[in-house]
C-alpha cells in the first residue's frame, strides 16, 4: 500500500559546528515507517547548509527572525502555506519557540499542526526559574541564585563554594574560581544577554543527556539517555553512546508525569561522584543528536509528527544500548546562483 505523504516544515537547518537539530530531524522523518514526506526547510540565514541539501530538503523558504515580531512571521508562514499546504511545522530553535507557541492556535486553524510545550511549561523551565521548578516538582536541581546587582556578588561566598557557574539568562555559562572571576563573567555575560545573571552551584561529575517525547498528559512516549564521548570547544557532543540507566529514565518519567510536558525535549543531567543525579537544564526541543534515538529504535520525530496530527502513538519501551553516533562534517559544492537565489528571493 502506498504510504500517505505529509508536508512537514522544519527549522534549524544550520548543520554547522554548533549544529541545529533540523537535518537530524529530517533524516528521521525520511525514514518514518508510517508516512512519506515532502520536507520544507525554513531558514534564517542563506548559508544554512540544509538549504543546499536537495536530497534531504525539497524546498527552502527564508523566514524572519523572531525579532521581527509574530505578525511578520505569520504573514510569511501564510505565504508558504499557500504554496505548500503544510501539514506540520517542527520548530527546532529555543529562540523561535515563543512566537511559534503563541501562533499555535492560529496555525491550527489554517490546518498546520505542531506539538509544542505550553507557554506555561516553556516559561517554567527557564534557567532563572530552575530552583522553583526543582522545588515544585521535587526534582533534584543544583542550587542557584538569581542576581541583578554586582553588589550581590559578595554575599555569594557564604552561600556557594568555589568554583561556581555564572550563567546568562538565555545563553552562556562560565566557571568561576574566585570572586574576581565572578565579577568579570557577570559583566561580560550581562553586557551580552542582559540581567539577571544566574549563579549556580558547580556539580563535579559526568554529564549525561536524555532526549524524549511527552504526550502532554504525563505519559512518556520516548526516552533515550546518552553520554557524550567527545565534546567540542563549544561544548557540543561530537560523539556519544546510548546507555542504560534506570535512575535517569526514572527522573525523565517523573519530569514528564509531573509537568505533563508536551513535545520533544532534551534534559541535561549531571551525576556526581556519589552517584547523585541532578537536572541542570531542560531544553524545550529535540537535540541535534536526535538521530541516535532513531538509530537505537525510537524514531522520536516520527512519533512527534503523529501526535501533532492527533493520532495515537504507542510508547516506545526499548532501545539498543551501546550504540554510538559519531558526527562528521562535509563540504558541499554549491553554485553561486543558488546562494543568490535564496538571498534575494528567499526561496530555493
Amino acid at each position: 500500500m502506498k504510504k500517505r505523504k505529509l508536508k512537514i516544515a522544519v527549522t534549524g537547518l544550520n548543520a554547522i559546528d554548533s549544529p541545529g537539530p533540523g537535518i537530524s530531524v529530517i533524516r528521521a522523518l525520511r525514514e518514518a515507517a508510517s508516512f512519506d514526506v515532502r520536507i520544507i526547510g525554513l531558514s534564517y540565514e542563506s548559508l544554512e547548509p540544509g538549504i543546499y541539501m536537495h536530497d534531504l530538503v525539497d524546498r527552502t523558504y527564508s523566514i524572519p527572525y523572531p525579532t521581527a515580531g509574530i505578525d511578520t512571521l505569520l504573514a510569511r508562514l501564510e505565504y508558504i502555506h499557500e504554496k505548500e499546504k503544510l501539514d506540520v511545522i517542527i520548530p527546532n530553535f529555543d529562540a523561535e519557540l515563543y512566537p511559534f507557541i503563541k501562533l499555535e492556535t492560529k496555525l491550527k486553524a489554517m490546518g498546520i499542526h505542531m506539538f509544542l510545550p505550553t507557554l506555561h511549561q516553556f516559561e517554567e523551565r527557564q534557567k532563572v526559574n530552575l530552583n522553583e521548578f526543582g522545588k515544585k516538582y521535587n526534582i533534584n536541581v543544583p542550587r542557584s541564585k538569581v542576581i541583578h546587582d554586582l553588589s550581590m556578588v559578595y554575599s555569594l561566598q557564604s552561600e556557594f563554594s568555589f568554583p561556581m557557574i555564572v550563567k546568562g539568562k538565555f545563553y552562556d555559562a562560565s566557571i568561576a574560581y574566585s570572586i574576581e572571576q565572578v565579577k568579570s563573567y557577570y559583566n561580560k555575560i550581562s553586557a551580552k544577554w542582559g540581567l539577571p545573571i544566574i549563579i549556580q552551584e558547580f556539580i563535579h561529575g559526568t554529564e549525561f543527556n536524555v532526549t524524549g517525547l511527552g504526550d502532554g498528559k504525563g505519559n512518556t512516549i520516548a526516552a533515550v539517555p546518552m553520554r557524550k564521548q567527545y565534546i567540542t570547544e563549544k561544548g557540543k557532543a561530537w560523539g556519544g553512546i546510548s546507555i542504560s540507566d534506570e535512575e535517569m529514565l526514572d527522573m525523565t518519567r517523573k519530569f514528564l508525569r509531573t509537568t505533563k510536558w508536551r513535545g520533544g525535549f532534551e534534559l541535561e543531567l549531571m551525576k556526581n561522584k556519589d552517584g547523585e543525579l541532578y537536572m541542570l537544564e531542560i531544553n524545550p526541543r529535540l537535540p541535534a543528536w536526535i538521530y541516535l534515538a532513531v538509530g537505537v529504535g525510537q524514531n522520536i520525530p516520527e512519533a512527534l509528527v503523529k501526535l501533532a496530527m492527533g493520532e495515537k502513538v504507542k510508547p516506545f519501551t526499548k532501545y539498543t544500548v551501546g550504540k554510538m553516533f559519531v558526527r562528521y562534517s562535509w563540504d558541499m559544492i554549491v553554485d553561486r546562483e543558488e546562494f543568490e537565489q535564496i538571498s534575494i528571493y528567499g526561496e530555493l
Binding site: Y44, S46, T72, A75, I342, S343
Partner: peptide, 15 residues
C-alpha cells in the same frame, strides 16, 4: 552587499 542573513524583502517588511 548580500549578507548571509535575512533578505530584506521579507524579514522586517512590516516595520
Amino acid at each position: 552587499k548580500l549578507e548571509t542573513g535575512m533578505p530584506n524583502k521579507f524579514g522586517t517588511r512590516t516595520e
